[in-house]
Amino acid sequence: MIERTFTVQNKMGLHARPAAMLVQTLQKFDSQVRLRKEDQEVDGKSIMGILTLTAEYGSALTVIAEGMDEQGVMDSLERFFTSQAHEE
């Protein structure tokens, strides 16, 4: 199991399109992925779960990945969150 915290860099927060991209990224992996913001935790492969997190600009998201390809999950999330910094 790996746990890591990312900051939402997108000015509009994790709204529909970035959330969709995030889910699509995670669906490629077999690992179970949970996202946690403060005391709320959701399934990383659920678009509605992510939207209900209402992760606005600057909020901290903790990712917990568990499975054979958990390292791959973290690597692609790292890329995802860095690239998001430059979207509006």
Binding site: A16, R17, A19, A20, V23, Q24, D43, K45, S46, I47, M48, G49
Partner: peptide, 16 residues
């Protein structure tokens, strides 16, 4: 067309 992508994801959401 990507707008619909979000709808498709909701449709495939584990919640549903």
């Amino acid at each position: 067309a990507n707008l619909i992508e979000a709808y498709l994801l909701i449709l495939e959401d584990p919640l549903i």
